[in-house]
Design a binder for these strands. Structure first.
Lengths: 325, 325
DNA sequence: TTGAAAGCGCTACCAC
DNA sequence: GTGGTAGCGCTTTCAA
């Protein structure tokens, strides 16, 4: 490993001087600087971030905690975060929590141990003491909170929009799929839909589910049609479940959208590829990731007047599983 | 921040002793150990990984470089890597390269700067000098190489299997979709398919594509049916493209698998959710991630007799886009 | 404008 | 068994 000492020796100066040119602060004579630059190039030196981090008590690392990167909504978020962060010179320490508080604690701890300068987390456990005790910029992603800056889309509004859409498009026996109880955004959109449905003059029923996953989505779809075979409008808990429902409806020979309309949530990339293509409520995941990163960076840099919360717009994407008029 | 000094003071011992109980090496009296443990608990101390890393010249960090986490094949790999690694006490530094050598270089450099103990990379650029110069355990994931340990599935065999399957199931005018030229595994499976197709007594044509992405998959599918409207068997470059093709075939009123059979590649989770469900060549992505992590850990620990290469089995998953007999 | 040296938090060597 | 201390690679006073 080539260190700052080697560079100093090569350039015939002290390490202090090398450090100065490295960080571009303090006075350095033009020719000295040149010598140092040459030595750096010559030795192909690049500074040890760990030593820097130790001295300054802060690294260029940021911790990102996500429930499960395997769920297609999250890679979008992650990518948004990364693109913004890496551009600003930060690197990402990634953890999957599986919504499991234990894992979450462990990751947060190792983030701290590694001197991260900030944390972005999609957690349902913000109110645990570990977050309170955290002496670090924290931004919530895809989650709202009273106590921390957050970037999220308005789930309640999204739920309302989904319900309203189906009602307007003439669905009369609506089935609402309720996502996992422990996932906050799932409940928000559910509440929004309930609100709108209750207000309107339609029959509706609720299918309660406990996961968002590919593995089980098929099961929920089957259960749905077994229990509510005459439903003519389905509000899915997310696009994965939505796509599974579309699939199951086709299997059962239902005509979409004539017999049954289906609306998803999230607008994950593959919802454009289902057959028929899935109408859905879009959350701008990639942009949310970027915004969260930007917000975090501004907080880290202590820029004045940084907003506490960014609520991203939710939007209806009409495709082929809802009627046209 | 509470440091080892604070613990030492609290426990009335020296930092050396605290360090010994922390690392569980050297002699420590039972009662002394107890006092130290209590002090640690009392102060809620956890050691600074950065300081450790600096002294030992190695961290508990591992760099993972992937082309694009947004492509649904990679989260599976990433998750496999993470699950195995985190269990062994390592944490993940993540980077997306977009197959871009510049970004790749930058990430590798920051991995090194952060004292990672090893790197897992899915790169097409192994032969660049940066990897050569790397004085770190490296394992390739989803890529083969003569020079480095690697975990991958046999793309050639997979390509053959895809072609063989379609031929056996009676396709007579096969269209083979060729993936991006710069992506090694895409070419392997293509070559395998070509090989098998050439050997058999069938007509076939090739559609050349330059991406794997959701955004463009739809376009490739349309182009395919525009150019080869009478094809009765399609070998997709991956499942994304496969799903897009299934979708487009349905749009065009083709019966699947009667009029046209389609076979994908990868077995990403959503291929079970297309309509009809996509037959495909499965790569065990999650397991590949795990194996890569295990291999890396064994290399780091310098265990004797570590295999250089793990070739994972490729497997036909028959679903509804291929005929039954 | 430059260099010497302290110190970031930790580990490991050497004394006792 | 335990403590003192050098030193990991760097940045930043402070003096010169």
């Amino acid at each position: 490993m080539v260190t700052i000492k080697d560079v100093a020796r090569e350039a015939g100066v002290s390490v202090a001087t090398v450090s100065r040119v490295l960080n571009d602060n303090g006075y350095v004579g033009a020719d000295t600087r040149k010598k140092v630059m040459e030595a750096i190039a010559e030795l192909n030196y690049s500074p040890n971030e760990v030593a820097r981090s130790l001295y300054k008590r802060e690294s260029r690392l940021i911790g990102l905690l996500l429930p499960d990167i395997t769920n297609p909504f999250f890679p979008q978020l992650a990518r948004g975060v990364e693109d913004e962060l890496s551009q600003a010179g930060y690197r990402l320490l990634l953890g999957n929590s599986d919504e499991n508080i234990q894992k979450e604690l462990e990751y947060i701890q190792t983030f701290v141990q590694n001197n991260v300068v900030g944390i972005i987390t999609a957690t349902n456990h913000v109110d645990y003491k570990i977050y309170e005790a955290l002496d670090l910029p924290l931004v919530l992603l895809d989650r709202a909170s009273e106590n921390y800056p957050a970037v999220y889309a308005d789930g309640r509004e999204g739920g309302r929009l989904a319900a309203k859409t189906l009602i307007e498009k003439g669905a009369e026996r609506i089935t609402l799929v309720k996502g996992p109880a422990n996932i906050k955004p799932a409940q928000d959109r559910f509440q929004g839909a309930i609100e709108e449905l209750s207000r309107a003059d339609v029959d509706f029923s609720v299918l309660s589910t406990t996961s968002y996953s590919f593995e089980e989505a098929q099961g929920w779809a089957e259960e749905l049609f077994d229990k509510f075979s005459d439903t003519d409008g389905i509000i899915a808990s997310n696009d994965i479940v939505g796509i599974a429902i579309v699939h199951e409806a086709m299997e059962r020979g239902k005509r979409i959208p004539e017999d049954v309309q289906i609306i998803g949530y999230d607008d994950i990339p593959q919802s454009r590829l289902s057959y028929p293509t899935l109408s859905t409520i879009r959350q701008p995941a990639y942009e949310m990731g970027r915004e969260a990163a930007k917000l975090l960076i501004r907080t880290i840099k202590k820029e004045p007047g940084v907003e506490q919360t960014i609520q991203m717009p939710v939007e209806l994407v009409e495709r082929k599983t809802t009627r046209k008029e």
